[in-house]
Design a protein around this nucleic acid. Structure first.
Length: 130
RNA sequence: GGGGUAGAUCGGGUGAUCGUCCGUCCGUCAUAAUUAUGACGGACGGGAGGAAAGUCCGGGCUCUACAGGGCAGCGUAGCGGGUAAUACCCGUCUCCGUCCCCAACAGGGACGGACGGAUAAGAGCCACAGAGACGAGCAACCACGGAUCUCACGGAUUUUUUUAACACGGAUCUCACGGAUAAUAUCUGUGUAAUCUGUGAUUUUAAUCUGUGUAAUCUGUGGUGAUAUGAAACGAGGCAAUCUCUACGCGGAGCAAGGCCAAAUAGGGGAAGAGAGACGGCCCGUCUCACUAUCAUUCCCGGGUUGGCCGCUUGAUCCGUCCAGUAAUGGACGGACUAGAUAAAUGAUCAUCACUCGCCAAAGGCGAGAUAUAUUCCCGCCAGUGGCGGGAACAGGACCCGGCUUAUAGAUCUACCCCAGAA
RNA sequence: GCGCCUGUAGCUCAGGGGAUAGAGCACUAGCCUCCGGAGCUAGGUGUCGGGGGUUCAAAUCCCUCCAGGCGCG
């Protein structure tokens, strides 16, 4: 598996998976995104995306989901493995571009305490300082 | 060169890195062990739209009777054509609107719009206003005629009453004067005033008759349309986007259709009883399963799974040429293969080229001004060069097509019109 | 995918061809009260979701678009 790949097997797809993460997982949020986290016993991470019709029409929703996927894919080497994650979009997320969303998601990672210890230093710090 | 209208086409390009979906081929591993499946990796090829949207119509396809009859219901509506079909498209007639020609009317032309059948059967509505609102007569006005009656004028007659005034007479009484008497009392004469009464005449009023004029009411005949109304005045009115009628069309559900495999749950409750279901509103008709009973059947409720495969992309497909047709469109020939996802694939970052907007810089042209003049200074405008920064629409397949409607920055081409400039 | 409903004053709703579009609450002003509340009186408030059409006349009928909501599989 490539370092920055994102296959279908890493997606949460069943309704029961989503409900399990929503009810039993921890959540943290900012103005744009709600992140749900629940440990699984697979030894790798899986993500689910939830963008409701309140966000906008199909083009806007697809763009938000693509940005979610891109940010997760390019930062997946910093995460501790073994979690199910759900990104829930809030209404203001439409105005975000890629760097703003990356900063927002990395902050949420840090608050959810799923960042690898050594990764918490270098790149995130650079981004935040920049 | 700029602007407008109409139509057609396109709707960012190129490159790098990382990543995604599908197909073909290959490699490693696992399972059954030719080969297939799954996971991971690699190479190559392909990968959203003109509206993919809204779901307003029409079809294909699938199941239900290869979809049957009647009623009900729904839809369409000049005529002709196109099409698989339509509420779509094309042509044309009629009507309406705008503009132009014409001094004006008539007429003609251009453009745009129209759910544009009902002559024949019926029902309903037509507020307010108005005398009158759809088949019935009322009222108004005018003309003629009649009846009743009011008023005015003229004439005639009659009557009584009242009032007013006049004339005359009578009675009573007051006052004045004169006379008689003894007397201021009484009697008497004259004049005057008041009251009552009689007579005469005039005027007014009332009644009757008659003539003329006028007004009102009733009535007969004929005519009229002013006012009012959206329209209308005995016309076979208007509205059928009110019901209805006529003609034509429509069976129903929808890819979560439908079929197969795997897994899981339950063997539960209720109803029916010779019928039940397909069948969607009703009736008929057809087909299937049953037709003697704590069994079995059918239906409903409840319970479980909500995984995979097929359907799934070659099709009324697209492109080019020729022919037929006013056109929509059709035919022939040649070529092409162009997404098949399913918590749902096209993205992110960077560079660059074009498009556009703003700012800055240097030099150029033109115009005006300052200076005695000028190669100098300043201001404004113009096109082009360089740099920096920003913007780049509407919008994402979900079985597939044909239309319609709506959203849409900009670019190109064609036709027409207007403005400016040059020859 | 299919079907249905709603949009009228600031809010909740009536009105289903002829109205100056109405009711309640709210708002404003006045009276009352020492003040406020309650009460009484008066008043303002509308592109009837947008556009087009039928009609003499449209909130109402027809077409189309927009926004919101609901149901079934």
């Amino acid at each position: 598996m490539g370092k920055y790949s994102l296959k279908k097997s890493e997606h949460l797809r069943k309704n029961s998976d989503f409900r399990r993460v929503y009810s039993k997982g921890k959540s943290c949020a900012d103005h744009f995104i709600v992140l749900f986290v629940l440990p699984n016993d697979l030894g790798r991470n899986r993500i689910g995306l939830s963008v409701s019709k309140k966000i906008g029409k199909a083009v806007k929703r697809n763009r938000v989901k693509r940005l979610f996927r891109e940010v997760y894919r390019l930062n997946k080497d910093k995460l501790i493995q073994g979690f199910d994650l759900i990104f829930l979009a809030r209404k203001d997320v439409v105005n975000l571009d890629f760097p703003k969303m990356e900063r927002s998601i990395l902050r949420l990672y840090k608050r959810a305490k799923i960042l690898k210890p050594q990764a918490a230093g270098s790149r995130l710090q650079n981004k935040l300082e920049a």
